[in-house]
Amino acid sequence: MSVAAGSKNSRRFLVTLGACLFLWWVLTEGDPGSWTLGVPLAVLAALSVFTLPAGRRYRIAWRQVLPFALSFFWQSLVGGLDVSRRAFSPRLPLRPGFIDYPVQLRRGPALTFFMIVISLLPGTLSVGLHRACVHVHVLDLGLDVQGSLADLEGRVARLFGITIHQGEAS
């Protein structure tokens, strides 16, 4: 038990250290002279992750990252085009309003991530959270927002390795 926990912890430490070193490499643009400072700092940062109180644990299904990123980029391109079209159009075609979306994700990193991503997608802006409903402002009430939000929630749940009951929403 303790041995297993120890090896798990050491693996987590190595992963964190690797992430810190990678971040240093990116920030210094691979300057070889900076490693004398970078390696001790990365070790200190990785140690501090373990000594400071831990936040909420979450795990990411790494296999889902690429499909999620691709659909995210596509959707954010659509969102930008949509809002630009409305801004440039002389008639200003807007039908703004609020809707409530019943969310199935529990409070935690996955829900926070979901609410941030809502704001970057076409026509929606997350405003608040009441009990189990996300309060969403939409640019055009005529669009099928509930359906696209349910779709997005499913993808976020898959990204975080959570199972939710699809089909109840919408």
Partner: peptide, 21 residues
């Protein structure tokens, strides 16, 4: 959009989506 849109929420739409893109 920030100049033309009618209220705070719609202006926020313009800001988050168009500018980040």
């Amino acid at each position: 959009g920030m100049l033309r849109f009618p209220d705070v929420y719609t202006r926020l739409h313009a800001l988050t989506k168009a500018d980040n893109l």
